[in-house]
Amino acid sequence: MPPAANTRHALSGRHDFDAIAGWIRSGAHVLDLGCGDGSLLRFLREARSATGYGIEIDDARIIASVRNGVNVIQSDLESGLSGFESSSFDYVILSQTLQAVRHTERIIKEMLRVGREGIVSFPNFGFWRHRAQILAGRMPVSRHLPYHWYDTPNVHLFTIRDFETFCAGHGVRILERITMNEDGQRITGLPNVFGALAVYRLNEERAG
């Protein structure tokens, strides 16, 4: 990794932010699903002059997002994106959120309806450290899966291979993929084993 990118890691705080910012063109209109405290939107505004909105359900994170100066709309992702017109965003982002969503198929479908492209990042359950912990008889705890089995917000853990199978079966075209290790360094070999975090750029496969 070039040192400049590491500096940006420090700025953005999350490894997937740089990958996402690298894909988003300047001035893009984005919707961030499960935007937390608005850090990604703020980062994209500063790095890419992006505009747009975050969606968040948690009261404290709504206040944190407003304090961060980003647009945030309080709503439950599980009930869909009915308040948004089709193709009204350049990108719809699920940054480390998909594994905490119950209605996976619905949200991916909605994401690719509202956005011309979707960006999804998630912790890879197939990462070798996770595999090793399972072999040792324990549920994995790692940098990108920091929760214990009893306090995790995650409801659907999955691997890189699972996700790509899902995409193939649901008319989702993978445009680009970045995988990285626990330190955010990009890796290419055996991604489902050495990748701790995966980031995808997607769109909808149209008939014909």
């Binding site: 209109h29 505009t51 909105y53 009261d59 709504i62 997002s65 407003v66 980003v70 647009n71 945030v72 709309i73 309080q74 709503s75 308040g83 948004f84 017109e85 009204s88």
Partner: peptide, 10 residues
């Protein structure tokens, strides 16, 4: 949102 105006909603 349709008009791409800045809005937050609680």
């Amino acid at each position: 949102v349709d008009n791409r105006l800045n809005v937050s909603y609680a």
